[in-house]
Amino acid sequence: MLLIIDKALDVPHILKTWYQEELHSNFGAYVPFVGTVRSEEGIDGLSFDIYNPILLKWFAQWQQKAKKKGAVIKMAHSLGDVMIHESSYIAAVFSPKRRVALELIDEFVEDFKASAPIWKYDLKDGNRIYALNRSKAIKGSGLLGDTQ
């Protein structure tokens, strides 16, 4: 389950839908992580670009990894503008027992930050500014550069 949604996420609706989807799947644990845009450094909000083909492959690999542990991962992310105190990201793990879900959500969200092909921009004074200093080069970056 990977949802890409235009603008802010309807968090209560998504969490409730996922809860209902898995209510009879015999999972003992449902661990969601919700990412909300904070007011900092005078921004009005954030904006996102996503490259879907690689995101889908990345997510499918995680789904396989989760399956081996008897777990399911769900994720929702915003595309475009999301204003402060709105939410742009939800990840959730369902698993038979709590330990797997708690560990998997941590690993999944960290790898998401390092690898998912999503680009973040600050919305400030009517401008959309790439958040380079908060971004992370994907593993193996620099292949085409002159420092190889």
């Binding site: 490259y51 742009s88 992370k136």
Partner: peptide, 10 residues
């Protein structure tokens, strides 16, 4: 071929 600059989802 695609070039992917540093990422920051979430």
């Amino acid at each position: 071929v695609s070039l992917l600059p540093p990422v920051c989802g979430g």
